[in-house]
Design a protein around this nucleic acid. Structure first.
Length: 277
DNA sequence: TATAGTGTTATCGG
DNA sequence: ACCGATAACACTAT
């Protein structure tokens, strides 16, 4: 599902099409995705306004809105894609003309069965959140202040600080959105594989050189995935299966659970392994 | 029919 | 209170 690169693709869909159009109607009837709002609450807050900015930090997006009648700006619209969310833009005829294709798996273009939220504009176009699993979220004035630095912007000192606390496995720390924002399960495996670090290594046992190497690897993985439009374009992802082998050295890939998530690593290049029972 | 899953968060135990 | 591990969430694809 969406990690930073996919969310950036979704943000660009909003930026290309949703900014500047006037909101005519809002479908906020899914009370699970739109919690804690009541149905109609977001519609009442947004109709007549325009989206003026599409922002992102880690996997969270938020849009600023215009004021009504030259008044001050409106509320902030927060969007999180969860595990299966996609942002899709459709034209006046309901034809899908952008979005969604950054992650085609399990969904045909134009399949809007799982639309959970939508903004319809005065010109008849619309943006929608298509999210089969409904783990995505849309809300007003979302809390984003708890997120750590965006993984694309994080400086070396900030990255060192993010890895400096506690003794969790390094992969668990990479996934901690309060430490740094944007890294998901696949990106974490890729960065660790590139840095040749075992995902179970406790952060407090990493050398400074290893931490710095990890940041370079993460940066390279992010750049590749953002350019390619998604984490599915990363190198080690195709090897995450039962008889997968390391794309670099050919050794068998090993599967385990780290930080509560399914994790794959190279048995030869990422040694160190399982913590003693 | 049973299971895994690209994310987040409440809850529990140390 | 801090930290880390786990379950739960909702639902589809395999």
């Amino acid at each position: 599902m969406p990690e930073l690169p996919e969310v950036e693709s979704a943000r660009l869909v909003l930026e290309r099409h949703a900014l500047g159009r006037t909101i005519a109607d809002v479908d906020d009837s899914d009370t699970y995705v739109c919690r804690p709002h009541l149905p109609g609450e977001m519609r009442a807050a947004l109709v007549g306004r325009r989206l003026t900015e599409a922002n992102r930090r880690g996997k969270s997006m938020w849009c600023e809105t215009s004021g009504l009648h030259d008044a001050e700006a409106g509320p902030t619209l927060g969007i999180h894609l969860g595990m299966s969310g996609k942002i899709v833009f459709v034209d006046r005829g309901g034809e899908e003309i952008d979005g969604g294709d950054y992650w085609q798996r399990g969904r045909a273009r134009g399949d809007h069965r799982f639309t959970r939220f939508a903004l319809r504009f005065t010109d008849g176009t619309a943006v929608m959140l298509v999210d089969p699993r409904r783990l995505g979220r849309v809300r007003l004035d979302p809390p984003v202040e708890r997120l750590g630095p965006d993984a694309l912007d994080i400086t070396l000192p900030q990255f060192r600080a993010a890895m400096a606390r506690g003794s969790a496995p390094v992969k668990a720390r990479l996934l901690d959105q309060e430490a740094l924002a944007g890294v998901g399960n696949l990106l974490a495996d890729e960065a660790l594989w590139r840095a040749k670090l075992n995902p179970n290594r406790p952060v407090d046992e990493l050398t400074r050189a290893e931490v710095d190497r990890l940041r370079r690897s993460l940066r390279a993985a992010l750049d590749q995935a953002v350019a390619g439009g998604g984490v599915h374009t990363l190198s080690v992802i195709p090897a995450r299966h039962a008889d997968g082998s390391c794309p670099r050295c050919g050794a068998r890939m090993v599967r385990g659970t780290v930080g509560g998530r399914t994790t794959w690593w190279c048995s030869r290049e990422q040694p160190g392994a399982a913590l003693p029972a």
